[in-house]
Design a protein around this nucleic acid. Structure first.
Lengths: 186, 186
DNA sequence: ATGCAAAATGACTAAACGGTCAATATTATT
DNA sequence: AATAATATTGACCGTTTAGTCATTTTGCAT
């Protein structure tokens, strides 16, 4: 297997478990089964490594979020599709989801990386803006609405990760979505 | 001023800004204006320092949450009182609130400390349980409901911290509370 | 087989860290 | 004023860290 991939995979799990500063590069390379120097052949520094990891995760997530979105017709069904996609991706990529939660606001992630990551959510922000304009959801500041949505979404996702069997339960999926929808609908 | 207090105060801000691992004890003592050894006279280790900080913050918060709660009669008004108290405390103790958000799940906080901290929320959890029993709010798992509530509460609090002038606006306070209430009410 | 470029290695280094402790300063007691 | 008790200090130490680089191994073209 590609040694770069092995390093990224080991780093993902170790960063999740011990945090960025408490994970020595020597530990990462040991876990990946490569020499200490190899990490620095592929990444300029430990910081570059975690930034690459961050963007890789975010790309994987955003790619999945829009899947099948064009088939939905109403605002609610579009939002629910994104909701289902988000939870589905998180269950399939638990380590990536948890990494993301832990490091999305960490100072080891550079400002450039963070901005690049945020831009990938633009189409979803636009959808929310439409919902406000069409008076389907409450009329508040777009930033406020986005952050609130993400908070509820993440809270629900954590619950599905702790109880993965529930994800196959359409009734509970709808119930959990109702917490989000009832909160924002007009 | 008490040197112990100076150390706690400096640590709070530095941990917020740079994180636990990226804040050398030497930096804390320098900022506090005391010698490096002084920190270890008051705290056995850097870890004990952050655990004390955690419990201090949590105590201050929970003391304020129940203020005036006995005067409220309905479930909704009780919850709103807690809501207002939480946001009020967070605005008055922004550093403590942010510290809390960053470190409530961090591994540097010991299991004992975390459990001690959680127990302080017991009366609020009980209130939520009553709301479920009395069929005022949706009937779901108590843990799920608690986590969801905290998520919405924190999302709203962040917004008030970014826009402190809104906290004096009763209409917006009610609007923001409606995001929480509409989400959970039956 | 041979030569060669690219990839991988791990012993090594300079810097930074948490924590110690003997010495010093401050405060309280008589 | 003398003494004892307590609080404070910062030079110092052993350990750990990210990152380097001369050397070795690998894979491929001829």
């Amino acid at each position: 297997m590609d040694k770069r991939e092995l390093i990224l995979k080991a780093a993902l799990i170790l960063f999740n478990t011990y945090g960025f500063e408490s994970t020595p590069t020597a530990r990462i390379t040991k876990e990946a089964g490569v020499a200490t120097g190899t990490l620095f052949n592929y990444f300029k520094s430990k910081e570059e490594l975690i930034n690459v990891l961050y963007l890789t995760c975010k790309e994987s997530l955003t790619r999945h979020l829009s899947l099948g979105l064009e088939q939905e017709t109403t605002f609610r069904s579009k939002l629910k599709k994104i909701y289902i996609n988000y939870i589905g991706w998180s269950l399939d990529h638990t380590d990536e989801f948890l990494f993301f939660q832990q490091f999305c606001n960490a100072s080891c992630i550079g400002e450039t990386t963070r901005k690049e990551g945020l831009s990938k959510f633009n189409n979803i922000i636009e959808l929310i803006a439409e919902g406000i304009e069409q008076e389907i959801i409450k009329n508040v500041n777009l930033d406020y609405m986005s952050n609130l949505l993400m908070s509820i979404l993440n809270a629900n996702t954590y619950y599905f990760i702790d109880n993965p069997s529930l994800a196959a339960n359409d009734a509970f999926l709808e119930t959990s979505f109702s917490f989000l929808w009832d909160s924002i609908k007009k």
